[in-house]
Amino acid sequence: MDWTSAQLRALVELTRRGTITAVAEALGYTPGGVSQQIAALEKATGMQLLRRVGRRVELTDAGATLALHAGRILTTEAEAVEALERTRNEISGTLRIGLFATAAAEILPPALRRIREVHPGVTVRSRDMDVDEVYDAVVGGSVDLALGLDYPDVPIPRDPSLRVRELFRERFSLAVPAGTMPGRWRVSLAAAGEHGWILPSVGSYYGRAVLTACRRAGFEPQVLHEVTDTAATLALVESGVGVSVVTDLMLRLRPSRLDVLELTETMERHIVVVFRSFAEDRPTVAALVDVLRACADRPPPGADDA
């Protein structure tokens, strides 16, 4: 049948995410664009693949059957790309990488400079996305690999089809409005127990990791401002409305007038690169992973080597 990979991927993502809007966010399309992909797929198959249930959509039996096979088709296609790359005398090709804000600002640029130097035939296309979505994006094939985060206190579930390579680790510190704790440079999390907090939603891995650490320190953080954006968090701390935890990479996103205090507890996050297991020997993927790991051997000031 005359269908495209983009159409099949839209259908597969719909089985993962449940709504047209969520699929659009995952694939970088508009909701109308996703609907057009599905409509074109229905025309190609001559069958109804979706039905509306109130404001939601669900797969028909035909849609569910095709989605199952579509996942296999997309995997086979990716394996074919890998096999073709291995027949070339030089490492060349296009890679799609997913990344979160800190990675986009601090980690990817030096890696891109290096990959151009050592493998000029490799083209890298990047997509900014929610850090909690990068694992699903790799599994679904919307990106070839991704830079992500993992938290020892709240480990992200490991899909057996993925490979996760740690690049380096960062310890968290406590960010407080300037002058809030004069004369102190090292404190326990419990010292901030009476302050208002600025944190992401507890539905995020980051939010749950901070909540777990605070509970272990003996208090429940009073979240006054639920914020995902790091730069906005730093701005709010600077304005004096609350405290938060930060890493050195996070601090580099926005110069801020605030106090950063070392924590007595070890609270950290791991910067990782994620790719599908069958792509481990794909030349372009292996080359970019090697470059990322080499750059991680020289992490930004304050980051601990993994």
Score class of each variant (00 low, 15 high):
D2S: 14
T4D: 13
S5C: 09
E13M: 09
R16H: 09
A24S: 05
A24C: 01
A26Q: 12
L27R: 10
Y29E: 10
T30L: 03
P31H: 02
P31W: 07
S35L: 11
Q36I: 03
Q37N: 12
A40P: 05
K43P: 06
G46E: 14
Q48W: 10
L49M: 14
L49E: 12
R51C: 06
R52F: 06
V57M: 14
V57I: 13
L59Q: 06
T60H: 11
L68G: 05
T75P: 04
A80R: 13
T87M: 11
R88D: 01
E90Q: 14
E90Y: 09
E90F: 11
G93R: 04
T94K: 00
L99N: 07
T102P: 08
A103V: 07
P110G: 06
A111I: 03
R113K: 14
I115Y: 04
I115D: 01
I115C: 03
R116W: 09
V124C: 02
D128G: 13
D132A: 10
V134Y: 02
V134S: 03
A137P: 05
D144T: 09
L145K: 04
L145C: 04
L147E: 03
G148L: 08
P152T: 06
R158N: 13
D159C: 02
V164Y: 07
L167Y: 04
A175H: 00
V176D: 07
T180V: 06
T180M: 10
G183E: 05
R184M: 15
R184S: 14
R184F: 13
A191N: 00
A191I: 00
H195Q: 12
L199C: 13
L199S: 12
P200W: 11
S201M: 11
V202R: 14
V202A: 13
Y205C: 05
Y206I: 10
R208H: 07
R208K: 14
C214W: 03
E220R: 11
A231W: 05
A232M: 13
E238H: 06
S239E: 07
G240K: 08
G240H: 09
D248N: 09
D248M: 10
D248A: 00
L251E: 02
R252I: 05
T266V: 10
M267Y: 04
M267S: 08
I271A: 09
V273R: 02
F275A: 13
S277Q: 11
F278E: 06
E280A: 15
V285S: 11
D290G: 10
V291T: 10
R298D: 12
P300T: 02
P300Q: 13
